[in-house]
């Protein structure tokens, strides 16, 4: 049934732009001892290709939970998630790994680089899991490192880099498989305003190149740079530029 729904959904709205991401009544529950914590309480959301979105909201409102679901790292407790018209609930664990590796790029607040690998090797990780050949993957990684301004740091270990530099490695890594959607969870949260600004500049360029970009932020000023803003509160969408406009 969800599959047919998916088809009709894309069939109906699919004239010019099908949403790359669609959430329908998504809830996420956590069992904490005797209590059921509802981190998300019913999210409906459509994201179109090329969207540039800031997600705002107070701490604990469910931003990261929603982004993890969007990133196929987690599954909704209730509701459906369609990625490129495909019901994610129907996918196997291996399929999900494939989706994460090919269609999605992650950038985390704490960089999450692999400590024993160098800058290039970190950038190559997603390519390795897609079976890209050694020479080709090295070429891509070096090019991306140059693009984020780390051309001279190729063989450095993460511990030898500043926070801003590490985050740029993480961005290069997120881009290595040329994903359609990039998800960033407080990517600038640990950085000063200068390096944070640099990172946002890279994001602007990526969006200009046609990538869909979704980022969580606490900074209203940064949210102003993105055409679309979503505000969450207590597991629900409080404000969404898109729905405001379509109203």
């Amino acid at each position: 049934m969800p599959e047919s729904e998916a088809k009709t959904a894309s069939g109906v709205s699919g004239k010019s732009t099908d949403p790359v991401i669609e959430l329908r009544g998504v809830e996420k529950h956590y069992q904490m001892g005797e209590f059921l914590v509802k981190a998300l309480k019913g999210i409906d959301l459509k994201i179109l290709p090329g969207d540039y979105i800031s997600i705002l909201g107070p701490s604990g409102c469910g931003k990261s939970t929603m982004l993890n679901i969007l990133g196929c790292l987690d599954q909704p407790s209730v509701g459906n998630y369609f990625l490129d018209g495909l019901d994610v609930a129907q996918l196997t664990d291996d399929d999900l790994s494939g989706v994460r590796g090919k269609k999605l790029g992650f950038i985390f607040q704490s960089y999450n680089l692999i400590q024993q690998l160098s800058v290039v090797e970190n950038i190559e990780v997603p390519l390795y899991y897609q079976g890209v050949h050694e020479d080709e993957s090295r070429e891509i990684a070096v090019e991306l490192a140059k693009k984020v301004g780390l051309g001279k740091r190729l063989d450095h270990k993460p511990t030898e880099l500043s926070g801003g530099q590490q985050q740029r490695v993480a961005i290069a890594r997120a881009l290595s498989n040329d994903p359609a959607v990039i998800l960033a969870d407080e990517a600038t949260g640990n950085l000063d305003s200068k390096s944070g600004g640099d990172i946002l500049g890279i994001f602007d360029d990526l969006n200009a190149d046609g990538k869909t970009l979704i980022m969580i932020t606490h900074d209203e000023g940064m949210a102003k740079r993105t055409p679309r803003v979503i505000r969450l509160k207590d597991g629900l969408i409080e404000f969404d530029t898109y729905t405001e406009i379509t109203k």
Partner: peptide, 14 residues
Amino acid sequence: EIGIRRALGAKKKD
């Protein structure tokens, strides 16, 4: 590290 690799496309068997 395992979480990172899984997020970057590693399958369980990897």
